[in-house]
């Protein structure tokens, strides 16, 4: 685009145009520099990326918990699957994952042309990014670090991986938590039970 030189002087013809120009002069309104808008747009993308990163970390911790949830003992420690899932699912990580994915989407939506991306495509894109990064973080052991640190430093958070030990410590339900310190292969099963009874 080149500057266009107008030969005739510019005079506002309509009272409205005169009014607007007068107001611009009176209020000393100036054109904002371009860098402000560029910076704002880049910050929005940066915040969106940061939100996706947080969601990915939560995903890594969520994967770690899900894999170590002792699915095979679900109906031993709990009467129903619903009860097991209620006590075991990492709701905090799922909440953080959903919240930060939403924040990421909202930031992308407010970038200069973010509104042009269809909702479904945006959500799929964010889901793929979050899951992809989440898997990478999980594989590199970051999920475990996050889960253990959350258990240690967040007073309101108790990791299900520690909590599940208490589920196995229920003699009334024929559950007994313990560590095997000695294994005697010469003793048969009935003898072992007899020893326990006499003890």
């Amino acid at each position: 685009m080149t500057l266009h030189n107008f030969s005739s002087p510019i005079i506002a013809k309509t009272p409205f145009a005169k009014k607007v120009l007068r107001k611009i002069d009176d209020e000393h309104i100036a054109v904002r520099p371009r860098w402000i808008f560029l910076l704002r747009n880049r910050l929005l993308w940066a915040f969106a990326f940061l939100a996706v990163l947080v969601a990915s970390v939560a995903t890594a911790a969520m994967f770690f918990v899900l894999i170590h949830m002792d699915w095979q003992h679900a109906l031993i420690t709990h009467r129903t699957w619903i009860g097991f899932l209620r006590d075991s699912l990492p709701f905090m990580w799922i909440g953080i994952l959903i919240l930060f994915s939403g924040i990421g989407y909202a930031h992308i939506r407010t970038t200069a042309y973010g509104y042009r991306y269809p909702l479904v495509l945006s959500l799929i894109g964010i889901a793929v990014a979050v899951c992809g990064l989440g898997i990478i973080f999980f594989m590199s052991g970051f999920g475990q670090i996050i889960e253990e640190n959350a258990h240690e430093y967040l007073p309101w958070y108790e990791s299900v991986l520690y909590e599940k030990q208490s589920w196995l410590n229920g003699p009334n339900e024929e559950l007994l938590l313990g560590a095997v310190t000695l294994q005697d292969n010469t003793m048969d099963h009935s003898q072992a039970l007899a020893n326990v009874t006499t003890a």
């Binding site: 685009m1 500057l3 266009h4 510019i10 309509t14 409205f16 145009a17 120009l21 611009i24 054109v31």
Partner: peptide
């Protein structure tokens, strides 16, 4: 678009945009 560029350097050019869209 040309008027926008011109307005940035010369405020008075804004009149043309106002009168176009008023």
């Amino acid at each position: 678009e040309t008027l926008v560029v011109n307005t940035i350097s010369d405020k008075k050019q804004f009149v043309r945009l106002i009168e176009r869209y008023e």
